[in-house]
Structure formats: C-alpha cells, structure tokens
C-alpha cells in the first residue's frame, strides 16, 4: 500500500523549524547586545518630513483672521502672494520677511532613499532585461548559423563574457567604454548588465532552438517557407516556450546581479542600503529590509513567468 505522509505533522514540523530559526536570530542578536530599531527604517522608506515654504521676496507677512493663510506683500509694490494649508506657520502677523525665509511648513510625503533605490534597481533591471533578450536572441541565432564569421564571433562573445567576472565587466564598461563613448553611469551600468546577461540568454536560446526536432524546420521548409519565416512562425515560438523556465532563472539572476552596479555609484537598492546604514546605524534592519525588497522583485517576476507558462501550456 502507498504510504501518505501525515500532512498536519510535517507542516507543524516545518513551522517549528522556521520558528526556531527566527528564535536563534533573536538569541544571536542578544548575544552581541544588538538593539533592534525597526522604526528608524521607516523614514527611509517613506519620508513624511514636512515640506517648508519659503518667502519668494522681501516683504511684510500678514495672517488672515483665522490664521490659515499667510499673505506676503512685497516692498516694491508688486502683487502680494498668498499661501495656505500649512500645518505649522513660522511667521507672526506683520512680521518682516526676507527672500528665503521659512514662512511655514506643509505636510508632505515622498519616497525615501530605499524605495528610490528600489525604483532604480527596477529600472536598470528592466532596461537590461530587454536589451539582454534582444542581444541574446541575435547572438543565439548567430551561434547556430552556418556562417563561420557569425558563428565564431558569437562563440567568442559568449566565452569572453562568461569567462570574466561581472564586477570587472562593470568597471570596464564604466571606466573604459564609458569614458570613450562619454556614457553616464546608468547607461554604462545597464550596458554592462545587458551584455553580461545576453551571453547567458544566447546560450539558453541556442539550446532551446536546438531542442526543437529537425523535422519541424524540414516541414516548414517543405511548405515553401524561407528560413526566416520558418524561424519566426515555427521554431522560435516552440523554443520560447521551452526556454521560459531557464530564462526566468536568468532574469532573476539579472535582478540580483544589478546590485553590483552600486560600485559605480548608481544609487540602486544596494547603494541606498549602504547610505541608509551610515545614516541610521541600524545595519541589520537595513540589510534585512533590502533583502526583503529584492525578494519581492524576484518573487513577482517568477510569479509572472509561472502565469505565462500556464497560459502557454494550452497546446500540451
């Protein structure tokens, strides 16, 4: 008889293991007398610091009867300006104000440096992903081409890129290519990531194409399609479906590898994390938060790919 494991027991065991890991983290931080200050992270995620309003010119400030509006009347007789919806007013009725003085502050919220870094990471990953696929498709097709020039060039490209560390490539792109072509750091970083990921994408696409039985190409050609038509309508759609799982892994790697561009001073999530650590002296909290945000990005991506895979499974 087939034995079915007791689900309740093993799920309970899983929970117990996770709880004991969490507890040991707590114990570990106690043993080095670390005080957790999660609240310090919040302003670096969402900045709710009030926004100050400055006097635009020298003049006299007048408060309205209910003290909600400040009217600044300029000395030179120009049109007076009025300001309202302050949370705090810093001037009194009839005060003399000078250009640049704070007349009050308004409630406001902005993205903090960590979330700004998250957006930069998202941007550089997306840009690199698109270019990695385009370059990778071209290099992958060149790899299986019968033209010796294309074949060997693409092989050389793949070997060089895969044989050197990404960090070194980023430095080369920023300091050498970036200087020669006068690239800004974001472009240099995105270019390095694209070129790096493209080498892996090319290999994935090549193996995907080669995994399609030769009969598919023969059938397409025997119907009068040329090579490009056969590729576009027959081979690539099937190869695309087969390469989705390894491609998803590569894209997740791309997001994680993007943390390396922080070395050329792109304020991505990792660089923002480093900056926030020096501002808060809460390194544990910051790095756990940063890790969680990376996990959100990669998790969302793999969820999207799963969705796509399920949609494409209709012909199986």
């Amino acid at each position: 008889m087939e034995k079915t494991p007791n689900k309740l027991f093993w799920h309970g065991a899983l929970l117990a293991v996770l709880l004991s890991i969490a507890y040991s983290i707590v114990l570990a931080s106690q043993s080095i007398e670390y005080t957790w200050r999660w609240e310090r992270i919040v302003p670096y995620l969402i900045n709710t610091e009030p926004k100050a309003e400055y006097a635009p010119f020298d003049g006299v400030a007048t408060l309205s009867a209910d003290s909600s509006t400040v009217i600044v009347e300029p000395e030179n007789g120009d049109m007076p300006q009025s300001y309202d919806s302050f949370t705090e007013i810093m001037v009194g009725d009839g005060d003399l104000v000078f250009e640049g003085d704070v007349i009050g502050s308004k409630s406001d919220w902005r993205l903090g440096p960590i979330l700004n870094g998250l957006i930069v990471t998202l941007q550089i990953s997306l840009v690199s992903l698109v270019f990695a696929v385009l370059i990778g498709l071209f290099v992958g097709l060149a790899r299986i081409s019968s033209n010796p020039l294309l074949k060997h060039l693409s092989l050389l490209y793949v070997e060089v890129i895969r044989g050197t560390p990404l960090l070194v490539q980023i430095f080369i792109f920023y300091f050498f290519i970036g200087t020669v072509l006068d690239l800004d750091r974001f472009t240099a970083g995105a270019a390095a990531l694209s070129v790096f990921a493209a080498a892996y994408v090319a290999e994935i696409i090549r193996s995907g194409i080669q995994s399609i039985p030769a009969g598919q190409m023969e059938a397409a050609r025997s119907l009068g399609m040329n090579y490009v038509q056969a590729m576009v309508y027959i081979i690539l759609p099937q190869a695309f479906k087969r390469t989705l799982p390894p491609m998803a892994g590569q894209f997740i790697n791309l997001i994680k590898d993007s943390s390396l561009v922080s070395v050329i001073s792109i304020t991505d999530l990792t660089k923002a994390g480093r900056e926030v650590v020096s501002g808060t002296f809460a390194p544990f909290e910051v790095w756990f938060t940063v890790a969680l945000l990376y996990l959100v990005l990669t998790g969302a991506l793999s969820w999207l790919v799963k969705l796509l895979e399920r949609r494409m499974a209709s012909s199986d």
């Binding site: 039985p213 598919q216 023969e218 059938a219 397409a220 099937q238 479906k241 012909s315």
Partner: peptide, 11 residues
C-alpha cells in the same frame, strides 16, 4: 511532402 514523424506544428 509528408513525413514519417508527421512533423505537425505542436503549438
């Protein structure tokens, strides 16, 4: 042409 292995387009 008709092939031994059919070679229909599975997608």
């Amino acid at each position: 042409m008709v092939f031994q292995g059919f070679n229909l387009f599975p997608h």
